[in-house]
Design a protein around this nucleic acid. Sequence first.
DNA 1: TGAATGACTTCGG
DNA 2: CCCGAAGCCATTC
Length: 108
Amino acid sequence: MASEGFFKEVYKVAKQIPYGRVTSYGAIARYLGAAGSARMVGWAMNASHADPEVPAHRVVNRIGLLSGKHHFSGTNLMQQLLENEGVEVIDNRVQRFSELFWDPVKEL
DNA sequence: TGAATGACTTCGG
DNA sequence: CCCGAAGCCATTC
């Protein structure tokens, strides 16, 4: 599949997300020049489970909602992982999201 | 080839 | 911020 290059880019960015920080699918999409293809980032993350080094739990939607927690093993694994990094999560949502938000376009 | 799907985003109310 | 509707685009069937 030629699209593996796209996934690789997503993984590369995801792996660069600092500890205890989070970002959004749209931000990654924009950084990859695929603005508007946020859904494809989500698709890439779906395939990211093949690479355990990809911190998919640090990638949430634009409001810090753990939209992908349902794709993790347990029902609250994603939240546990984030809380383990010092990220406060309440009701599937990242608290202080604006503070923890890490924008690859700005930071990279 | 075309219709359906999805770990999203943006806009208006 | 919550709700509903429309837009986007790669992948799958």
